[in-house]
C-alpha cells in the first residue's frame, strides 16, 4: 500500500491534464491499489518552472514537465527542438533523443543532473502563429505586428517577420494584452487559444505548425528505483501507453480546436507553394542563424542529419 504524488501545472481542461489523470488512474487499477497516485493539478504544488526541482528534490514523485521550459535550464542544447524548419513531428524529436549519440547525451545529461527519469510523453501540442489581423495570406502580412515573447528564443522569428514590437508577458496577462492591443500576435498551441479564451480576439491562424512542444512524465529516480520490479513495470507501462494515446490525441485535439476557431469566424491560413517556400527560406536564412547561439553547432548538425535535411 504505497502512495505517490503527481504534480502538474495544467488547468483541468487541458488535454495534458486529462492524460495525467488517466495515467494516475491506470496505475491505481493495474496495481490493484498497491500504488495510489494522488494528483495535484493546476500548479497547486509546483508551477511550470518549479516542477523539475519538485521532482528532483523528491517533494513529489512524478511531475508533468514541459521540455522547453524545464530542460534548457539544465542543458541549453535541448533548445534544438525549437530550431525552425528542423523537426516536423513529435516522432522525429523523440527519435533524435532516443537514437542519436548526440541526442542521447543531452537527455542523459539532463536526467542525471536532476536525478530524474523520463517515463513517458504527454505533449503540450504543436505551435502555430495566431494574430488579430485578418486576411494574412503571406509573411508580409506580419509586418509591424506586436508580438508576445515567452523566452528570448522566440525573438529571431518575430524579428525576421518584421514585428513592430515584442512584449515579454506572463501567460496570465496575455488575454488583457490582446484585448487592449498591447500585443496582436502570439505563437502558441491551439489548446491555449481556446483554454485561455484568447480566440475572443484572434482572427487568423497561420499553418503549418512550426514547432512541436513535447512534455514529459518525469519521475524521481531514487523513488522509482525503490519500487518493487512489478510496480515499477506497471508505472512504466502505464506511462508508455498513456503517452502514445496522448500524442495521438493532442494532434487530433489541436486540429479540432482550429476547426472550432474557424467556426467562430476565425480564418485558418495554410501557407502552400510559393508562400511556404518563402517562409521556409526565411526560417533557414534569417531565423536559424540567429538561434545558433542557443544550441551547439554539432547538435544542430546531428539534428539536421537525423531528419535528412543536411
Amino acid at each position: 500500500q504505497q502512495t505517490a504524488k503527481l504534480s502538474y501545472h495544467w488547468g483541468p481542461t487541458h488535454p495534458a491534464a486529462v492524460f495525467a489523470n488517466k495515467f494516475a488512474e491506470l496505475v491505481g487499477e493495474r496495481s490493484k491499489g498497491a500504488l495510489t497516485i494522488q494528483v495535484f493539478p493546476s500548479g497547486q504544488l509546483f508551477g511550470i518552472r518549479d516542477i523539475l526541482g519538485g521532482v528532483s528534490s523528491g517533494a513529489v514523485e512524478i511531475g508533468g514537465a514541459v521540455g522547453v521550459v524545464s530542460f534548457p535550464t539544465l542543458n541549453k542544447n535541448y533548445n534544438v527542438t525549437n530550431l525552425p524548419g528542423v523537426f516536423e513531428s513529435f516522432e522525429q524529436i523523440r527519435g533524435f533523443f532516443a537514437e542519436t549519440e548526440v541526442g542521447k547525451a543531452i537527455m542523459e545529461d539532463v536526467t542525471s543532473a536532476a536525478g530524474i527519469e523520463i517515463i513517458g510523453f504527454n505533449p503540450v501540442g504543436p505551435s502555430a502563429v495566431f494574430t488579430t489581423r485578418e486576411n494574412v495570406t503571406g509573411i508580409e502580412g506580419f509586418k509591424g505586428v506586436s508580438a508576445r515573447v515567452l523566452t528570448d528564443a522566440d525573438r529571431p522569428r518575430w524579428e525576421a517577420l518584421g514585428a513592430g514590437r515584442m512584449v515579454s508577458l506572463p501567460t496570465g496577462e496575455v488575454y488583457t494584452a490582446l484585448q487592449n492591443g498591447m500585443i496582436d500576435t502570439v505563437a502558441t498551441v491551439p489548446g491555449a487559444i481556446k483554454g485561455y479564451s484568447w480566440w475572443d480576439f484572434l482572427k487568423t491562424a497561420q499553418m503549418p505548425y512550426f514547432q512541436f512542444n513535447d512534455a514529459y512524465f518525469i519521475a524521481n529516480k531514487p523513488w522509482l528505483d525503490s519500487l518493487s520490479p512489478e510496480l515499477r513495470q506497471i508505472v512504466l507501462d502505464a506511462a508508455a501507453e498513456i503517452g502514445a494515446e496522448a500524442t495521438e490525441a493532442i494532434m487530433a485535439e489541436s486540429d479540432k480546436v482550429l476547426e472550432e476557431f474557424a467556426a467562430k469566424g476565425g480564418t485558418v491560413v495554410t501557407f502552400e507553394g510559393a508562400e511556404l517556400e518563402k517562409l521556409s527560406a526565411m526560417e533557414r536564412n534569417e531565423v536559424l542563424p540567429k538561434m545558433l547561439g542557443e544550441v551547439d553547432q554539432d547538435v544542430v548538425d546531428a539534428a539536421l542529419a537525423y531528419v535528412g535535411k543536411k
Binding site: F46, G47, R49, D50, G53, G54, S57, G58, A59, P170, G172, E173
Partner: peptide, 19 residues
Amino acid sequence: NLPWATLLQVSFAAVTKQI
C-alpha cells in the same frame, strides 16, 4: 517530510513574480 528545497523553491517562485 518535505525537503527544505521545496519550501525555498515555492517561496522563490512567489517572491519573484513579475506582477
